[in-house]
Amino acid sequence: MDKFGIVFALLGAALAALGAGAGSARGVGLGGEAGSGLVTEDPAKFGKVLILQLLPGTQGIYGLLIAFITLSNIGVLGGSADFGIAKGLLYLAACLPMAIVGYVSAIAQAKASVASMGILAKRPDQFGKSMIFPAMVETYAILALLISMLSINGVAGLSI
């Protein structure tokens, strides 16, 4: 039964990559749809549209980072994978903020990005302001990243 620790820890790493990655994929896709519409009418806005489209892509990177740190800590990428079920569950719990907040915030950010493309369409001179609205959503993805990262490092140091 003790061997199940690694299973839960790996599940955590997978969820972090899955949740945040899936959210980013949906988000960037949504931004791409709106971006295509805007660029169809005005190809000169491609550069600015691309920045807005890519904003929800960061969650996927954060998810990858958390998954990578977890894999390193639990010994899947090398070293020993000798820990109990409790520690495995702690790793899983540590990965959840990034998995859940990553997914939700990527989609929310994409919606804000799409709305900001409306600003870009009508007032291209206000591009700076249009970037702020979706960028605000990023705060919560970063907070989740921070908590997941601190938790994983904390769990690694626990002797249970």
Partner: peptide, 16 residues
């Protein structure tokens, strides 16, 4: 249905 592409094009058309 979200009509994301369509609405983005309409935003530009509204300028006209």
């Amino acid at each position: 249905q979200l009509y994301t592409y369509a609405v983005a094009r309409i935003r530009s058309k509204e300028l006209l």
